[in-house]
Structures are given as structure tokens and as C-alpha cells.
Nucleic acid binder design. Structure first.
Lengths: 193, 193
DNA sequence: ACATCACTAGATTGATCGCTCTAGCGAGTA
DNA sequence: TACTCGCTAGAGCGATCAATCTAGTGATGT
């Protein structure tokens, strides 16, 4: 069993992801984490806001691991992109449309109300972009072109998550994935020319 | 001054959009709407959940008006797509990165917790797709091709809103917009062939 | 004039919110 | 054996939550 602070942080990250920030109570987190209530303000003197900001970073770092996990075993970049959307769709279905992006909900809730949390969200998105860069430049794209393509990929994925959760159906992930696969192919063709 | 019910609904929609569902209190809504507290349960016997679901539909209907407002005056479809992203970026900047999608936050917060609200969100997204269809089929696309392109457009826009709000910068909207403009051009070229 | 009823008005409910507080436990050092 | 101190433990703070309640108002129909 990990230490109390880690347990609180991981549990908080999971609850924020599934229920949102405002709807998740401190008490609910410590109860779910099997941690004493008093401990939370020892480990997170900044209160819920600090816990939220750190949870965003934890969730972001965890999700970032998916980038090499999906792209490394893929035979080529386009297959990797395809696998990313397919994997996202599968996981969403398997979790009954609960587990989508770990930080999208809390980002939208807090970006305009807490500067530390907005910063954390921004850092996470930026880290995802950076994590993707080597896979796209290795395939022949210039760094600016790779960056733009990855940003578009994340946008498409995030938007598709939103529509898919509302529809309880993976159509949006399928459609947006197909478009991004085509866009990747075209970017590679243009770079190779 | 519109009647009480309308005032409550419009104010609720606006607050849910900016603060999220869970973070917005019933009392705050009636106060901002200058409505008596007791009235809300008369007009919305289903309580906050009913108010939320109706607010989603109201916001969705309002935002849907942007579709013809942007595409009708555009000289061609591609210009319309470009204008849509440019307009979104401008409006986001002008509102200090507060006013993005009117239903994204509340959708993510409630899709897995309230079936009526999830349905409302789904209906709104579907209505946006349908509202876009004539503009894309008129340009020569088949209905399935138009639908897929519009879904991708909405995904790209929603994701770009998310990243832009986190970054307090419109780069994502610019990049995703460019990609969707190119995708639209290619879809038209393929249809016209 | 009178009854009806949609609506206003807000006090009040019990629960829960984030957070602070004091008390005490227990491993490590002297 | 004393003492420190990181951490646990939870009672309790004022505030606020969504929701219910009764009482009253005012326009309408007869």
C-alpha cells in the first residue's frame, strides 16, 4: 500500500477525472483513499486547489505514458495514429463511457477560476505534445509540422471524447480518427516530397 | 424584461457555461436572474437537473444560430470553415478565454451522472451536425461525407477550445482550423472528381 | 363580489461543503 | 527514559448546498 499522500493524490485524480472537480468533495477523496481526514491538510496545505493542481499533473503524466506505449510497437506512424484512436474508443466503451480524457473536465471547470490549475492543465497538454514530437519527426516531419499535427490530433481526440460521451457511441472517435489518419498520411507525403 | 422562467433559464445557461454545473448553485442563479427563490421549483419541478438539461438545450439552440450566421455570408464553404475558427478564436480572446463552447463543461460533468442531461447534450451536438449539413451538401458533398466532415469539425473545435483555454492562447484554434480548412478542401476536391 | 390558481416570496430543513482545530500516536534521537 | 516531530485522527467551525414548506399576491373567469 502506497503512502497516505500518494493514495490521496491518486484517488483524487481518479475522482476528479470521473466526477469533475466541483462535484468531488475532500471528504469523499479521503474516504475513498482510506486516509484520515486530518492528513489531507498536512500533505496539501494549499487545500483542494493544490490537490487539484497536483492531481492534474499526476493524471497527465500517467496518460503521457500511452504515447510511447502506443507508438513504439506500431509498425509506422500512421498505424500508431490509427491505434491511438482505436484504443481510446475501446477503452471508452469498456468503461461504460466514463474514462475519457483524465483532465478535460477539470480543465474546463477550473481554467478560468484558478491560475495554478490552469497552468497545470496547460503544462500537461504541452507535455503531451512534446512526448509525441520524436515519433513524428522520426517519420520525416519537420519539428513545426510535427507540432501542428500533434496539436490537431489532441484537439480531435478531446473533441471526439466529448461527443462520444454525450452520444454513448464511438462514432465521433471513429470519424475523427479516420480524418487524422488521412491528415497524417498527407503530412508525411508532403514532407517526403 | 422576459418572464421569470425565461430569465432563470437564460441565466442558468450562462452560469453553467462559465462556471460549470456543480459549481453553480441554485441560489446564485435565482439571485443573478433577479428571480424569487421559491419560483424555481414551480417552473422547474425537476430541480437542478431539469434546469440543467433545459439550459443545455437553450445554449445549444443559441449556438446553432452561428452556423447559418457564419456560413451564409461566406463566399464559399472553405471560407466559411475558416471564418468559423477565426470567429471562435476572436470571441475567446475577447471574453478573456471564458466563453468557449456553451455545453462542453456541463456535458463532461454530467454525461455519466444524469441521463436526461446526457441526452440533452447529445441532442444538441446532433442538432449542430444537422444544421451544418445543407451547407456542406450544397457545396457538392454527399450526405455521409458531409456528416463525417462536420463531426470532425466539431471535434476539432471542441478540442481546440479546451487547449486554448488551458493555454490562454489561440494557437490550438489556429492550428486545428488550418487543418480542417485543408480537410474540407480535400473533401470537396474528392467529391468533385 | 368571489373563487380559482398560476406564481411569488422567503424562511427553513437536514446534509454537506472546505477547512481549522486540538489531541495523540509512534518512530527516531539523545 | 525523555523529547521531538512527522503524521494520524476526527470533532467541529461557519457557510452553503438542493430542496421543501407554508403563506401570500394578483390576474382571470364567472
Amino acid at each position: 500500500m502506497p503512502d497516505t499522500r500518494t493514495r490521496i493524490l491518486d484517488t483524487g485524480a481518479e475522482l476528479f477525472r470521473r466526477q469533475g472537480y466541483a462535484a468531488t468533495g475532500i471528504k469523499q477523496i479521503v474516504t475513498a483513499a482510506q486516509a484520515p481526514f486530518g492528513s489531507i491538510y498536512h500533505h496539501f496545505p494549499g487545500g483542494k486547489e493544490q490537490l487539484g493542481a497536483e492531481a492534474i499533473r499526476v493524471s497527465g503524466a500517467l496518460y503521457e505514458l500511452l504515447v510511447p506505449a502506443v507508438f513504439d510497437p506500431a509498425p509506422d506512424l500512421v498505424s500508431g495514429v490509427r491505434a491511438f484512436f482505436a484504443g481510446a474508443a475501446l477503452h471508452l466503451e469498456e468503461t461504460d463511457y466514463e474514462d475519457a480524457c483524465p483532465i478535460a473536465t477539470i480543465t474546463l471547470e477550473t481554467a478560468s477560476r484558478s491560475e495554478p490549475m490552469r497552468e497545470a492543465s496547460h503544462d500537461v497538454f504541452e507535455s503531451w505534445i512534446v512526448a509525441g514530437l520524436p515519433h513524428f519527426t522520426a517519420a520525416g516531419l519537420s519539428e513545426p509540422a510535427a507540432r501542428e499535427l500533434i496539436i490537431s490530433l489532441i484537439c480531435a481526440l478531446e473533441g471526439a471524447f466529448l461527443l462520444a460521451r454525450a452520444a454513448r457511441c464511438t462514432e465521433a472517435l471513429q470519424v475523427a480518427g479516420d480524418l487524422m489518419v488521412a491528415a497524417t498520411e498527407r503530412a508525411l507525403a508532403q514532407a517526403g516530397r
